[in-house]
Each structure stands twice: as structure tokens, then as C-alpha cells.
Design a protein around this nucleic acid. Structure first.
Lengths: 349, 349
DNA sequence: ATGAAAGCGCTAACAA
DNA sequence: TTGTTAGCGCTTTCAT
């Protein structure tokens, strides 16, 4: 068996209660005794048994983190942020990937809640009722989603979208498409709103396209609808969609961004690995993750604390561009037969 | 407070011991009583307190998973596999991202081991001594790394490399470069070995290039050395490097794969999202993750069980290509829908 | 087949 | 400031 608090007590010549206090409530024990206890504990390599502690305190020392899909490059940054802060607070982290399954989410949350002191739910897909249950089960912080009377960390999607549109507007684009994400998506709504507001003050026409799945495939399948919309720039729901769209356009011989600009959200690492340049709205994922844990800890420390909200700032980024101008491909033959875009009716550039 | 075993016992009119048995050792209790107990437990919504159980059984019901970097697209598939099997076994999963820090790894493993019944260490960067300690702390399964007298799940890198070289050789390539990964890398060595053996029987000259960092940037910076090697095909250490190299070559106006073929390992999702086609050796990550947990559970069930080894088969895949040959650009015709090659590999469900 | 009781390792009253 | 004691929820002998 491992070394227990009794071993430490025996060797240090004190009671187990004193050991416990020395280690947990330093103020309530004589400095000399405390030092001795700590020394002994250290020497014996004592590590408290969290299960035993948890049995009496009701705390597990664990945090639960739920994400819809770890393979989505948006999430690892968040997970890392959450983890870094959790470890600092000496909390271990359960990570659950729900595979985008809104149904499964609820049950997983129930399981998690039982073993964790608090929950961080990232972009939860479940319906509000499910979220409410989660909140009732354990202190919960939502990330990338808001809910009345619940704590959350969100990103300034609206502001970011506005920045993006201002940028495009400044470049001379007058007809811009928004290739929307999934129907009920909260962030898609925010982004659209930001774009609309900015479009108004730029005399830009905003065309709503889609919605499409928030995936590479979603973007891949959207080339046609985008070309038909006769826009000079497209804002995709996120980078994954933007990348898919970019590929589909390239396959059709459309020069990106020469003929058509593509922008996205998230600033996923892949955005920097691609050639058609991509303007994207970056989210401070790591920080958001840390902030979420911070709120959790605050709730743990003070159960009476009301709902807290943090909105993280977003930043416009230019990714993957190799140079200033769109470079024609070398071996490319100049046969650009694209029925839709061949007649330029737009006031590009 | 939550509903405890005593509540169930009282309502069912039996002792707590019987409830415990009914729920855990169905054989040792009368079928009628068992049914009643289960019904009551169910109705009351009883959920065993794992801390209490753990206190007496010494089991936590948790598994620990350690990965070097979740943002590396290689790992999420593995994590998902591990998680899926862990949940089936009613084990919760601690996930720790070590940020490629070999030093931190050891301490994190120590912390993990205390709260988990077993450990799964993916591509651990730590030195053998550290691994030995881990193994001594808790039942441990290594993934993507082997260690004498330790259980592990590895991939058939050698066989995959051989397949790859056969493929390239069959295509007529006679000078092939290997852009190696980090110096001490176990998998890099395996891959090189497989390539060498196959090269011999194909009268192919294998040029060792690099090593480079196993990252996108690593590949990006290798264009020059690759071009100087005057090879007609390059096998990169992994897909990330391959993608970086592909971009760097494209920037220099080299036609991939027309003038130079690029291949990689891992079959990361991104491989399917890119245009210069990429031949890659796919690893059954999801399955490997599940297998790792399987081995863990076997060790848990029988502590006397000796070290187990599994080598997972690898498969050659063609990704991101739009056609068979270096493709002249095609004018956009009425929707020539590309076969959708970008879906995740079948083993990733 | 079932129950009584002990006790896992720890913390938190309550006493001293 | 420190020790004594009870008990968190559960499993597991040991009786019955």
C-alpha cells in the first residue's frame, strides 16, 4: 500500500488531524510542527488519496471538459488552454469527445458531472434543456455558446465579422457572400449579424448563401452556389469551410483571391499551410480555455456567485499568402471558361 | 445529497450488502431480489459513488491518456479510439497534452498514475528510464513506441514504408528521397528500414535527406535540399512534412506530382484537403486506441499477465488527387464531381 | 442467499 | 495548538 496520512502522523509524532491541517490549512497549525510534518510527508513521498478526501469533502479534484470533435482543429487549442489552467489549480482533466452527437452529449455530461467538480462545455450541440440540466448538476461554464443565467466564455464573433467586412469593403468589394454554418448555430448568427451591420455602413450588398455543414466537405460542395451568387468575396462560416471552398474553386479554375476572395473564421493552423491566401478571424482559444477554468474555480470557491460572462476579443489575420498579388500558376493554360463569372458585371477593384 | 446505496437498501427492504452484490456480482444473489434491487436503484436514479468504491477497491475507474500534442492531427484519432473503448468499459478518461515536453511528461505521468487504474502513453518523448518508472507506477500500454518488457501497440511502419516504395518503384521512380524525421525517432528508423529493404529489390536508389522537424515548417524548409537531390519522388517523414514540402515546391513552380512526387505517412485528414496529390501510409489510429485500452483492461483483469504487443497493419492511400496523372487544369464543365476522398478513414468511423 | 459489521484514507466537529 | 472521534459511501469478510 501507498504511504498514508497515518504513516506521516506516526513518524512525525502527531495525530492524523494535525497532518491533515498542516498540509491543507497551514494557518491553523504551529509553524514548527507544520515544518516537521511537511518534511516527513515529503521524505516519505506522501501523496494524499483523493478518493478518500473526496469522500468527505465532496470534491473530486477533477474537471470535466466536453468538446464536439477533437479532430476539428478549432478545439485542441481550447483543450490546451483549459488543461494548462486546470493543472495549475491541481485539478485533473477529463476530456470527452462527443463526436458531434447531441444526444450522446447529455448522457456523457451526466457521467462527467458525477466525477468532476465542474464542467466546461465547448460549443455544446445539445438543446437548451440539456444545458440547463448540466448547469444544475455541477458548476458549469459554457464556451462558445451563451445561455441565460449561465456562465460563459464567448468570442466577439460580431465584432470580428464586422472587422472582416470592413477589411473586404476597404479592398473594394461591393458584393460579398456569407456562406453560413449550420442552421441553429449561435456563432453563425452572431457572425451574420456583425457582417450585416458593417455591410450597411459600407454600402456593401451581403448575400446569404448556404447554410452548409461546418466542414471541409461543406465548403467543397458550395462552389456552385457561390459562383452563381456573383460575389467578389465570400466569407465562409469557418476556415474549414473556406478551405474546402477554396479547393473547389481552384478545381474549377477560379483564381483565389484574384477573381474571388475567400475569408473564414477561427484561424486554424491549416489556414497557414495553404496557398490560396486566407483572411481569417482569429479566436484566442488558449486564453479562452484558461478563462473558462478561471470562472469555474470562482464558482467552486463561491457557490453563491452568480453567472459570469466573458467575451474574448477577436483579431483579423492574413494567412497563407505568399506574396502581394495572386500569382498565376506556371503550367496553367489560360482557359478560364466559367459561364457564371466570365461577364464581369461587378465593380471589382 | 445524492441517493446512496443505503437509500436503495431501505426502499428495497434489503441490506446494503445485498444491494452491492445485486449490482456488482449478480451471480451471488437471488434472481428475484436482484430484480427488485435493480428496479429500485433504477427508479431512485442511484449512481454509485466512485470515490467510495475506489477507497475500498483501490480502483478509480479512470484511465489516463498522455499525448505529446493534441494539435498534431495525428493524435485526435487515437484519442477518440481510446475514449470509445474506455467508455464501453465504463472508465472515464483523463487526457493530458504534454506540449512535447519530455521533462514535464514524467511528472504528469506520476500525477496521472495516482488517479488512474492504468495509463496509455502515446508516442511518449521521455527517456526509457522515465517509461520504466511509469510502467512501475501503474499498468501501462505504450502506443507508437516499444520498450522491452512493456506492453505496446505499434504500427507496421516498416511494412508500410515497403509498400510505399514498391508503389513508387512500380510507377517507374528510380531515385527516391527520404526526408527523415527527428534523429532519435523510433518510427523514423522503422520507416527508413522498410524503404531500404524494398529499395534493394527494386533497384531503386534511396537518398537520405534531412532530418527535418516533423512539422509543416520542417517540410517547408526542405525544398532546396530535395531539389538538389535530383530525385523524382520524395517520401517525407509524415504528412505534415509532406504538405509543407509540397507547398514549398509549388511556390518554386515545381509541378507536384508531375515533376516530383511527394508521399508521406499518417494519412492525416488534411492530406485529403489538399490539391497536390499525396500518397500516404495510413495508420489505423482509432483501432490502435481501442486496442491499447483492450490491453490495459487485460492487465487490470489479470495483474500477472506478461507484456503484450500488438502491431497494427498500415495501408497505402491516395489522397487529395483529382485524377490519375499530373493533371492539366480543366475548365469548369458541368459539375464533374470528384470522388470524395476527403472523408476520414474508415477505421475512424 | 442474506445481514452485520469492519474499515478503506481522509477531514471536520468537538474537546482538551 | 493539538488530539479524539465520527463518518463520508461503499465493498467485503464472516456469520447466519
Amino acid at each position: 500500500m501507498a504511504v498514508t496520512i497515518r504513516d506521516v502522523a506516526r513518524v512525525a509524532g502527531v495525530s492524523t488531524a494535525t497532518v491533515s491541517r498542516a498540509l491543507n490549512v497551514p494557518g491553523k497549525v504551529d509553524e514548527v510542527t507544520r515544518a516537521r510534518v511537511v518534511a516527513v510527508a515529503d521524505e516519505l513521498g506522501y501523496r494524499p488519496n483523493r478518493a478518500a478526501r473526496g469522500l468527505i469533502t465532496g470534491r473530486t479534484g477533477n474537471l470535466g471538459l466536453l468538446v464536439p470533435d477533437l479532430a476539428n482543429p478549432f478545439f485542441p487549442g481550447l483543450v490546451k488552454g483549459v488543461q494548462s489552467r486546470a493543472l495549475e489549480a491541481d485539478q485533473q482533466l477529463f476530456v470527452v469527445d462527443t463526436d458531434e452527437d447531441a444526444e450522446a452529449e447529455s448522457e456523457l455530461v451526466r457521467q462527467l458531472a458525477k466525477q468532476a467538480d465542474g464542467l466546461v462545455l465547448c460549443s455544446p450541440r445539445m438543446r437548451p434543456a440539456g444545458l440547463r440540466e448540466a448547469v444544475s448538476l455541477a458548476p458549469t461554464v459554457l464556451v462558445n455558446r451563451a445561455l441565460p443565467r449561465a456562465s460563459s466564455v464567448t468570442f466577439d464573433n460580431r465584432g470580428g465579422a464586422a472587422q472582416l467586412l470592413n477589411h473586404l469593403g476597404g479592398l473594394g468589394h461591393r458584393r460579398i457572400g456569407f456562406l453560413g454554418g449550420p442552421a441553429g448555430s449561435w456563432s453563425a448568427a452572431q457572425r451574420l449579424r456583425g457582417l450585416r451591420e458593417a455591410a450597411a455602413s459600407h454600402r456593401v450588398t451581403l448575400k446569404e448563401l448556404g447554410p452548409v455543414a461546418p466542414t471541409f466537405e461543406g465548403g467543397l460542395g458550395a462552389a456552385r452556389v457561390v459562383l452563381q451568387a456573383r460575389v467578389s468575396a465570400v466569407v465562409a462560416f469557418n476556415d474549414l469551410v473556406a478551405v474546402g471552398l477554396g479547393q473547389a474553386l481552384a478545381d474549377r479554375g477560379v483564381d483565389v483571391p484574384g477573381e474571388l476572395s475567400v475569408a473564414g473564421f477561427d484561424d486554424i493552423p491549416m489556414a497557414g499551410m495553404l496557398r490560396p491566401s486566407l483572411t481569417t478571424v482569429a479566436m484566442p482559444l488558449h486564453q479562452a480555455g484558461r478563462e473558462a477554468v478561471e470562472l469555474m474555480l470562482a464558482h467552486l470557491a463561491d457557490p453563491e456567485l452568480g453567472p459570469q460572462r466573458r467575451e474574448m476579443p477577436t483579431t483579423l489575420r492574413e494567412r497563407g499568402s505568399t506574396g502581394p498579388a495572386p500569382r498565376p500558376r506556371r503550367a496553367a493554360r489560360p482557359d478560364r471558361t466559367r459561364p457564371d463569372r466570365s461577364r464581369r458585371s461587378d465593380d471589382d477593384e
